[in-house]
Nucleic acid binder design. Structure first.
Lengths: 162, 162
DNA sequence: TGGACTGGGTTCCCGAAAGGAACGCGGTTC
DNA sequence: GAACCGCGTTCCTTTCGGGAACCCAGTCCA
């Protein structure tokens, strides 16, 4: 399955999903952002089987999202650290956390709070337009074909009936 | 597997991942945001098997992310529309699209551009702090235990060695 | 100097889920 | 009344995930 081209167009969401679009990978990244870096720590913290963890870490390293770096020489040991590319996934994780806090908290409130170091406030991060600074919601955004578009999409085939 | 509690804590990311954390579900939601609403359209657009599509749509309806609403009476036909809860997932999809555009474009540029209707500009949405308005990056955020936290996390067990 | 330990994996087996394709079914159109 | 449409469901095969055991180099300790 060529996930990156699912949907009849070269879709950035599909390409991203092809890399981080499974539960374990998302949770590994979450832990990576929480400064967990070692095989044993990922394994014990997540309860993932060693087998799957090895595969996921390998994939993330291949994709340049994690880097396998030595942290001691004798015996040689490695840890997995987010690369710059990996760190750029933070908005995805934060968006998921924010949504989960809002809708899946089971009535107990958010399990984790996010404090913005620059201003010191506990905040719920939001997606904004870098141009006008306003929050961006689904109905305020228009998707347009870009330069990397390869194939026609089904959008517009059936005109919005609402 | 109780995905919502993986990691030894009731994690919002895990809870969100338990609902939308697989490739097909993400792509279905992407299409839903692109105003695709009908079984046949999802199926032909994504190439997903009818079997899996039926299951994913059912799950998303159960979770209150999509609503199955009739659009004609004879014969009775239904379409799947994002609920308010579903629409709140837009930041997750936008974050994924933005990341994919930045790192997975294969050198061809972004396949889809996002125009903010309020200001008319083509933008790359970003995560910001609603308090101070600055962009939020991974190293500028501190995660703190919140009221919904049930169990101790491994964070802090091994003090940041970097 | 050899036994236990540690970090970081790999192998094996089995049951669950995904892929692919065909089938079903109520209702409508020609 | 045959074809068609929208929306699924069933069946079968292949792949993937869960669980546990095993491995292995290097170190620590007696």
């Amino acid at each position: 399955m060529k996930w990156s081209e699912v949907g009849g167009l070269s879709c950035s969401v599909a390409r991203t999903a092809s890399v981080i679009g499974d539960r374990w990978t998302i949770l590994i990244l979450r832990n990576a952002f929480l400064r967990i870096r070692r095989f044993e720590d990922f394994q014990s913290n997540l309860g993932i089987t060693r087998h799957l963890l090895a595969g996921r870490l390998k994939r993330l390293v291949e994709e340049g999202i994690l880097a396998r770096v030595p942290y001691q020489d004798a015996p040689p040991r490695y840890e997995y650290r987010l690369t710059a590319k990996g760190k750029m996934l933070y908005p995805v994780l934060i968006a998921m956390a924010t949504w989960g806090d809002a809708f899946m908290d089971g009535g107990h409130g958010a399990p984790v709070l996010y404090q913005h170091k620059l201003c010191g406030k506990i905040v719920k991060p939001q997606m904004t337009c870098p141009d006008c600074g306003e929050a961006m919601h689904a109905h305020e955004v228009t998707a347009l074909p870009g330069p990397g578009l390869k194939l026609a999409d089904a959008v517009g085939r059936r005109k919005r009936s609402a």
